[in-house]
Structure formats: C-alpha cells, structure tokens
Design a protein around this nucleic acid. Sequence first.
DNA 1: CAGAAAACGCGTAATTTTAACACAAAACAA
DNA 2: TTGTTTTGTGTTAAAATTACGCGTTTTCTG
Lengths: 256, 256
Amino acid sequence: MENHEKPHFGYIYPRPAVTTDCVIFGFDMTEELLKVLLIERGIEPFKGRYALPGGFIKIEAKTNEYGLVVEERNESLLECAKRELKEETGFDVQNIYELGTWSTPGRDPRCITITDAYYALVTIQPVRGGDDAADAKWVPLYQVLNTIKNLPEGMRFLAFDHDEIITAAHIRLQQQLCFEPLAFKLLPKRFSMSTLQKLYEAILEKNFDRRNFARKMLDSGILDVFPTESRNINYQLNLEKYEEFKRTGRLSNLIF
Amino acid sequence: MENHEKPHFGYIYPRPAVTTDCVIFGFDMTEELLKVLLIERGIEPFKGRYALPGGFIKIEAKTNEYGLVVEERNESLLECAKRELKEETGFDVQNIYELGTWSTPGRDPRCITITDAYYALVTIQPVRGGDDAADAKWVPLYQVLNTIKNLPEGMRFLAFDHDEIITAAHIRLQQQLCFEPLAFKLLPKRFSMSTLQKLYEAILEKNFDRRNFARKMLDSGILDVFPTESRNINYQLNLEKYEEFKRTGRLSNLIF
DNA sequence: CAGAAAACGCGTAATTTTAACACAAAACAA
DNA sequence: TTGTTTTGTGTTAAAATTACGCGTTTTCTG
C-alpha cells in the first residue's frame, strides 16, 4: 500500500484509489479451529494493528491523450487480488470469491480509497514451525469476531474498516455454505467425518449430533468412502455427485 | 457515462474509471411477472442495445499536491449509485444491495472501467400509460435470461457485460431470499397470498402447491392477517416477527 | 344474466426428514 | 491393564413435507 504515495500530476476528474483486501479462511485441523490470516502493519496508518492482507491495485496500462486509460490490462480485479496475495502472504490462492466493496468516506486516512474485498479458502499446511510471512498470523476467527462484537461503541479492533469486512466475510461464508461445497476447500482431499463436522460447526457456530450429521452427509451421496488401515473411514467430495445434487434440487437437504 | 470523456491531464499511476450499474427488479402484479428495468442506449458504444441503468461515479473532491484525492466525499459508492439511479430512471430506490464488481479487461471499449454492480427491489407503480424515462423499459426477467441462455457462444444480448451481471443478480436474489425478506420489498404493503406465491415462483422458477405454500407462510407467523370487503384475505409482513424467526433459527423452515 | 371455469379457504393422510438417544467395538491415556 | 474417549451402527418419536379432496365464492364469457 506504500509506493502509491509518490508524487504525480494532478488530474481534473479525480478517481478513487482502488485496493483489494482478502479474508483468508483456514481450518486448523489440530486445534479444530477456523482461523483467518492477519498481517501486522509495519507502517502508518494503523501501524502495529492487525489488518487483512491486501493492497493497491497497480494497473500496468497507458493513457491516451485525454489521460484515459486505454491499454488493456491482462488481468481483472480478481487476478490482481490473487497476485497481491501471492506477493504478500506467499499463498497461491485458488478458491477466492468476491465479497463486496467498501467505500465509506474517510475509511482510509490517506486518500479516498475503494476496497474490493474478497474471501479465500485455503488448507492450512501442517508445516509447523514458523509462518512464511514474518508478520502474518493465523488467528482463530471466533476470537476476532468476539473481540469485535464486545468492542465499545465506535472503537475498532483491526486496521481501517477491516472489522466490518471480516464480519461480512463470515456471514457470507455461512450463507454460501448452503449453495456451494465450500467446506471441502478448507480440508485436505480426504478427511474424517468428525473433522468435517467440526468444520461445519466452526463455520455455522452451531453444534450437531454426531450421528445425525454423518447420516445426512452420507445420505446425500456427495461423499466417496475410503477405508483406512484402522477401523476409521475417510471421505472425499465427489464433485459430480454434488452438482447433480444441486440440479435435482435436493440441496436444501444439506442445509443445517 | 458520457461527460467523462472530456480531456484532462494525464497521470502517472493510472486508476480505472469506476462506474455503477444496477439491476432493478420489479414485480408486475397484473402480468404476474418478475421484470427488470432496462435502458436503451442512445450513444456508442452499444448504441441501440439495452443496458442496465448506471454510469460513472462523479467524485466531488479535491486533490492534494501529489494528485491524491484528499477531500472527503460525503457519500459512499452505494449512495452514489442511488443518486445516479434517481437521476437516470427517476426511481427513488430504497432497497438496493451490492452485487459485486466487474472488471474484465476490455469490458468497456472506451477505457479500463471497473463496475460496481447493485441490485434493487422496487414496487412497480401501477401508473399505467407511459414510463417515466423515455427509453426505459420493464422487461420480463425470464425473457432476458432465456435470451441470454440461448445465445450463440460468444454473443451477447445486452450492452457491455450486462448479460453476466443480470444473471448473477438473479442468482443472488434467489439465494438471499433464503435469508432476508426480500420478496416483500417487491410487493405493496398488503398483498394476497396468491400474489406472494406467484412472486416466489417467479424468483425461484419453481411452482408450489397453493395450499402448502399458504400453510408454510402462515405457520411461520411472519404475516399479519387483514380481511377485506370480499371473502379474500390480505397479508402484510411483520418485520419484528420475521427477525424473531431468524433469531430462533427457524429460518430454514421458510426455504423452498 | 346464466353457466362454466377459475380462484379461494379449509382440511386430511401418506411419506419424508429431523431430532434425540442406546449400544458396542475400537482407539487412547494413564 | 483399566477407565475414558472416539467411532460406527442402529432405533424411535416428533416434525415437516408432499400430495390431494371438497365445497364455496369470485370471475370470466357468451
């Protein structure tokens, strides 16, 4: 977000700066917690506060004689956001979805800034021992949300308006779970039923009966079954079956 | 979208132009059809084609010595979008929600343009005899969607990438119907049960049994009952009851 | 206006889905 | 080993969904 502040020529029709921010969700299988990736800001504004990873969109394009951007970029906002994430957090994010824009006046003290927010689903690699990005940190979502909820009126926990963004991202995740197989993008290819249940419980903030949950999942037919060496069973999403499940309109059976 | 093309000074860090487009849904009670408001473009590009109402955001702000926008706007993107709609279609839209951004390279042949898309829910006033905006037209949604679906590969019906936007808006409307009382924002304050059902059927593209639909709605308790002169009964949303319905987690009972 | 057709309100029964809980074998921890 | 937890497999009662029947009122149409 920094090297945007170099001097440049003024222009008559001011345009807002455009940035992207991303709520990266990950499911910590060992702690059985849904977490988000936050970054400690090293510079002002909000130096020392945690923030969502993101930054200014850098458009590589030329302007015509009127100052209008004419040369085609070779990427969309989404692709920009992906590239930024790669640069900033080292994550090669595949499952990323748009959340919405934030443009409240004054949200960025430096200049008028519109943020296009995303949320992404990644599998937290069990590479214990040191996170990649030095100042990046996986924080339990429920802790962040609780902190935000209990904040005194007018106070904020995260930098900028990231409190709102992360809250909205969680709600969206909860809702989209009804329509898309999002949970499976937070898990390794194969997983146990209890892990899947723990994840659903973490996302929806609800507890389910173990046996009813398993039956519902299995009856839906969207899971392939894989025995293991032990008596335990592993499962894997069958995407074709899921899509058929959607087509045949029985999706509401998977809503909890 | 027009008076943005006046010449102005170039700038080093090009920023994309930001526009808003809005899918305005309305329910035609006489025809029992869900419709969208489209505007015939009078100028290039896409002259003569239909498009979503919308246009460039005009930021009234001053820039500092570096050309950065520093003076606070007194409105957000959403408020901008509302104002634009008022100007362009005469609609004083209250129920408007963000849909997402579209920023595919080349989507606007004039310059790099990011669109923040919205969808709005209005009650079509039974002011028969001449639409307000001369070139604005209420078109049945199903006709638009069918036309788009059956288009040859690579061809488009509406201007720009508005085919995609309107399709996405319909999907979002279908989904949000599960979580918010959106249908009632398309109806007058009081309505008959069959009208409500016709609306649900139009949005979800599904047919329901008349008696089962009514029971489900009435059992939920979100409707207040009003007898009429005739034997028929009118209903009205009780927002408090709806919110309580949500809190007590019984919302899934209203999903069809 | 009269007869037909459609719309409306009220109801029942069969089926499916959900919710709550029992039990035993395997895995785990001390 | 022993007590505890986890996992797989049931059962049953309650609730919700689905598919209709029926008589009356309203609306349409010739």
